[in-house]
Design a protein around this nucleic acid. Sequence first.
DNA 1: TTAATATATGTAGTCTACTACATATATTTG
DNA 2: CAAATATATGTAGTAGACTACATATATTAA
Lengths: 159, 159
Amino acid sequence: MNVIDESGILAIATRLQRLSDQIRKDGFQVYKAHGIDFEPKWFPVMYTLFHKPVLSVVEIANEIGYTHPSTISLLKELEKEKLIRSKKDKIDERKRLLQLTEKGQILVGKMQPVWDVLKIATAEMIDTENNLMRAIEEVEGQLKEKSFFDRAAAQMKRV
Amino acid sequence: MNVIDESGILAIATRLQRLSDQIRKDGFQVYKAHGIDFEPKWFPVMYTLFHKPVLSVVEIANEIGYTHPSTISLLKELEKEKLIRSKKDKIDERKRLLQLTEKGQILVGKMQPVWDVLKIATAEMIDTENNLMRAIEEVEGQLKEKSFFDRAAAQMKRV
DNA sequence: TTAATATATGTAGTCTACTACATATATTTG
DNA sequence: CAAATATATGTAGTAGACTACATATATTAA
């Protein structure tokens, strides 16, 4: 065992990121193996617009939990791929409303069996003694109650 | 609840990354609050060189689980900060041997109480029904047995 | 009803990892 | 022992998120 794994908890951010990358890369390969030209990072936007067909930029950003600049750059890519299109909101001229194109809808249809496969494979992979998805949710809950910084600050006073 | 959280498992890579970023940012603030000028990303290298005082570039990369180019860029930063220094290996001229400078050693000494605080705060944060650190380790174990791609491929045949 | 504030979108540049490629030295093999 | 291969290091450019700042339109308050 290397010293980093021994240090365990101190490198937790690094471990999380590494795992994320690994899963994402394989995810991309799965789409590819199904003959689908789709990047995993596009999933949140496509999935959201499939379930809520007309949304503004900020609404999408909130749904997917990204900042709006990150969202905008995803939207640009998806518009370039002609998977989504946009139009000005006639009521509120600041807003740009996004929706799937027909091509986008067809792609979602094609991807749904892949999503099912990914869902099952992921569920199988994380179904261990400590369920990763639930652990994430629980930690997110903990952080909502009290940030990591505040926890460390509280600990600091004690020491 | 937004549609992404509902989709749960399909966006697990995104969730992992977001959590990682959040923890890292707060980590940086904790060092800062202790008057220590230290970036969390430096931790793996510094911690490794503290425990194994003389290592080559690739040895460090392996210890911390990064690619060597990523490691080189960290080493550059740390050398610039004068926290580490390097010398050619006299036996194997390809190798560059890294070690902590005195400044680096002093900094590690100063950081150790902070690491203790971070350890306790992290342990507290992830000590929920499903322990995040153990979940990560378990999933890493699962992936070693069978990659995510192979799991999806196996599932694909079944569908 | 104008001024101040808030919201929506967009751009530029940053951050922390990566992959792909290049070069130098060591080691192995025919 | 020369050629082929492997290993160690390095550089350049990419990826997927971010923050900080800028601008346009809407809303609220004086």
